[in-house]
Design a protein around this nucleic acid. Structure first.
Lengths: 348, 348
DNA sequence: AGTTAGCACTCAGGTGTAGCGAGTGCTAAT
DNA sequence: ATTAGCACTCGCTACACCTGAGTGCTAACT
């Protein structure tokens, strides 16, 4: 029971009409609007077949047809035509992102905000997982009699720091020595490696072998390292959901918002997704994601190594072609931005 | 036309009943529930007077009475009884906050999240305005051939850093020298002072007087300083609004959310509010804040100097007594936490 | 055999009406 | 000054009805 060419054409029309209007599509509208050379009755027959095949559904007897998840999947995989980003949007993306090349987090945040502005959907961005980042410097600086600042600089230029309260006296030289020792020990190791080493060393060295200063600092060093592992989730355009008619219902809007409120859960979901452009539609998502929602994520790179995620979440009825194009262009730009900041450009 | 004692009593009853139920309060319910020794008819007469005085309103003829902004103001200023925080909540606040005394931003974020959990309202916290913070260290560390990290440590232990891409060769010694020079020049100055000095120096020194390295670093130094001035706004419990019946209406929820989406505007509003516990009710707020919403803010201190804001936003019908108590206890705890991290405890 | 016109049928959503109940305001009695 | 009684108001809910968009089926057409 293969899908015929005309059926494909009809399905295509239904999907794009529904994506645009959000109303179930009827046979008469279809034959009028899309001029497909056959009568509504014929279309009805074909639609009935498409429904049997699982591509369409019926909210109720006397309503038009609505595409199913399966239809969207087909659309995304085969039917969808590439959407050309308007030059205007391209310009905005490139210029706004290169504005402040230096601040990793700020750039990523801005990318998310651009994405939601352009697509009118809720967007998010995950800062890169840093466990493959290496350690470059460990630095301890005095602040006042009772406290110092401990900071760790990564090979990617990222910095993590903690203010530490010390109950013991210390000298500036002592701090400097400890800094140098730590740097010597950990330079070049990845964060995950450093975390392991640290624990082992702590077990081998008994307490007396460590200076009092070291004993006070080491737990904080661990903590700072762990902080460096943290990924951050930025979300933008939360209220965009309200402008989508299907969600103009207090309960659905509520559920949507509450889902987004569970940031930890969302973060985990995003981290676990494959790399590259991934589209999951409706029921394909884990059950905790709202039904009738699609999730599109893509990956960006920093120096071709550390990877973060960026994407959107919205109703299954979304402009897939447009959205994927925007995300693609955006991640390209992010990759370039972050490549430049690491050294010279490679290609002319 | 002064308010009588009995009228006050009735008003008090209406306000607290309405705060609890959210339903307009009728005369019969009132006389039954609050046992005030007079008949509904009498209460009706008094209510009518209270309405004339502007303390009550009528959604429509055959509905009970609802307190006006003026009534809430009176309630907050005079009628409200102090609410004693349950020991359980006190315990949670103290222990959760002291968990991680070191990370300023994290602590503040956690405070906001606690506040929204306890009050079931939307809460926010503003990190302190840092313009009175002084500079302690300026540090420039090499990352790789093309880039360095510039960081500034403040007297409060706060750190701001930027990754800088350099197109010129440099030596580790050169960076160290520049770091020491900058530290020498700026140590002890406040951020605002440093920003001024920097501009002046730049004008005096002509370009040739500065090393090439310096010329590349200085703009980023300025930028990093400016970053240090940034205040951050954290919000928690956004979806709490949905559990309030009055906002169980798509339009109101939408407006509320959209107001909170304008973070810059909200930040400005909060910064401009006076210090201490400030309650603004309904129309007392600037018109951009949703009508029928009250805003409660309080101030916390770091070492008695840098001040940040924390508070809640919710419907005019909120449990003022409870909420203010929670905020009070919370800010006390924040103050203590931040006092400790700066040195020894002062009182036994 | 595929396509189309025609027609009966379905059903969501809007409109109109009636009844209920909570609450008020007024008046007259206490 | 307070209270009981009563007529009146008005939002809310339920119910019936109507309309219009859309389907599915059948019979006629090409």
């Amino acid at each position: 029971m293969d899908i015929s060419k005309r059926q494909l054409q009809i399905l295509q029309a239904i999907i794009s009409d529904f994506i645009n209007t959000g109303e179930p599509v009827g046979s008469r509208t279809l034959s009028k609007k899309y001029d497909m050379g056959v009568s509504p009755a014929t279309i009805r027959n074909e639609m009935s077949d498409l429904e049997d095949m699982g591509y369409l559904t019926h909210p109720h007897t006397s309503a038009g047809r609505v595409p199913s998840d399966k239809a969207y999947r087909l659309y995304v995989d085969a039917l969808m035509q590439k959407y050309d980003l308007p030059e205007e949007e391209k310009r905005i993306i490139s210029s706004k992102l290169s504005d402040n090349m230096n601040e990793l987090e700020k750039t990523i945040k801005k990318a998310a905000s651009l994405l939601s502005e352009i697509t009118n959907l809720t967007s998010f961005a995950l800062t890169p997982k840093q466990d493959e980042d290496t350690l470059k410097y460990i630095n301890i600086l005095p602040v006042d009699a009772g406290s110092v600042v401990l900071m760790i600089v990564g090979g990617s230029g990222r910095v993590s720091n903690t203010a530490v309260k010390l109950n013991i006296p210390y000298t500036e030289e002592g701090l400097e020595l400890l800094s140098k020792n730590l740097t010597y020990t950990f330079r070049g190791k990845t964060i995950s490696e450093a975390l392991k080493v640290d624990i082992i060393e702590n077990l081998q060295n008994d307490m007396t072998a460590m200076s009092q200063l070291e004993r006070n600092i080491m737990p904080n060093f661990l903590k700072t390292l762990e902080n460096m592992l943290d990924v951050n989730l930025y979300m933008e355009g939360l209220t965009n959901i309200f402008s989508i008619p299907e969600f103009n219902d207090i309960d659905r809007a509520k559920t949507f918002m509450q889902m987004l409120d569970h940031k930890e859960y969302l973060t985990r979901t995003l981290i676990n997704r494959d790399n590259g452009m991934i589209i999951t539609i409706g029921g394909e998502n884990s059950s905790n994601i709202l039904p009738d929602c699609s999730l599109i994520t893509a990956t960006y790179e920093i120096d071709g190594k550390l990877v973060g995620k960026i994407g959107v979440i919205g109703p299954t009825r979304m402009k897939y072609a447009e959205v994927t194009s925007v995300i693609e262009y955006l991640t390209e730009n992010l990759n370039n931005t972050f490549k430049l900041s690491g050294g010279e450009e490679k290609d002319g």
